[in-house]
Amino acid sequence: MRQELTDKENAPLDNIEDWEADLKVRYPKPKSEEAKSKTDYRNYHDSERVATVKEFYRLNHQYQTVDFVSQKQDEFLKFDKKEMPFWDAIDYLNTLVDDSDPDTSLDQLQHLLQTSEAIRADGHPDWFVLTGFIHDLGKVLCLFDEPQWAVVGDTFPVGCKHSDKIVYPEYFDANPDSKDERYNTKYGIYEKNTGLDNVQMSWGHDEYLYQIVKDFLPEPALYMIRYHSFYSQHRENAYDHLMSDHDREMFKWVDKFNPYDLYSKVPVPPDAKALKPYYEDLVAKYLPATLKF
């Protein structure tokens, strides 16, 4: 797939963080908490950014198919690309800075610390704090020249009908699965209320990180990581017919997590140097020193 794409198709966004900026426009408030008002963020839908975001989703919706997801699982879930100490992976994320983001000039480490420190300040368990700290680590997919639309973006099930609650649903018309009788019905290849563990999600940093850490963290943390970009469900309830009762219970944790991710950015940067010893101990408590990517 990568060889067939032009440079613009690989990277339609100026920076992958433009996707999260667009989320704040679509979802200006968390479900149950006050957040920065919509007018406090740049309105990307009134700017030239809307064209790049729309192009991003056009490509995402066209290419994220059952076959594509299976191909990426085969390619990346062998974890034979690279072996890296945890803190080297964090250092890499710091190269993914959006200099044009009007809401923050912070690097990825500082964004992660703002998320995790907000969680810690509210007295949540340490594994919840760690989840906030590592939730974007799957963006190391950029190391392997993955197209942006296979790293970030709203996630959704493949193998069944695409919901009209997904952002820019009209772009699924170009997705071959939408014309495939195996995949274009309400349930597609799945059974009613099969449970999300039996559902293939579109490929990106959420699923990738989940697969990396699934043996190390508590189940609520894994739900937060795996489904924090599944906005058509935890904002719109679009795929309730595939979810089990257990999924619904676990999604209470996803709902708790997302406001910290989207709305914890503040102009004062955290003191990364002062905080690092705490996070070194926290990471060592739950994760191996070296991770396979």
Rank of each mutant, 00 (worst) to 15 (best):
Y168T: 02
P288L: 03
G159R: 01
D67S: 13
P277S: 11
Y171T: 00
Y187I: 08
S37M: 13
A221G: 04
L109I: 00
I225E: 04
Q114I: 05
T194G: 09
Y92M: 01
D173M: 15
K165W: 12
L217V: 08
K192A: 15
D271K: 02
M1E: 12
E219H: 03
T131S: 00
D80I: 14
L93I: 05
K78T: 15
Y27N: 05
L222V: 10
E170Y: 06
Y263H: 13
K54F: 11
E75N: 07
S229T: 14
L242Q: 01
F86R: 02
H111A: 10
R182I: 10
K24C: 14
D18P: 06
L77G: 09
A221M: 08
T185F: 06
Y210V: 06
T185V: 10
S47V: 08
D80M: 11
N10P: 00
P102I: 07
D145T: 03
H45V: 13
A284W: 00
V25W: 15
H228E: 04
V213C: 06
Q233G: 00
Y208W: 11
Q62L: 11
L130F: 05
E146Y: 10
T131V: 02
P267W: 05
D107Y: 10
V69A: 02
V50I: 15
Q110L: 14
D67N: 10
F156G: 01
I134K: 04
V97S: 04
L282M: 01
E20M: 14
K82I: 03
V213A: 01
E33D: 08
Y223I: 04
K78D: 12
K36A: 14
A121F: 12
S202G: 06
P267V: 06
F293M: 01
S105I: 11
R235C: 13
Y208A: 09
K38H: 12
Y171P: 09
D180S: 13
P157D: 02
D99A: 11
R226V: 09
W253Y: 15
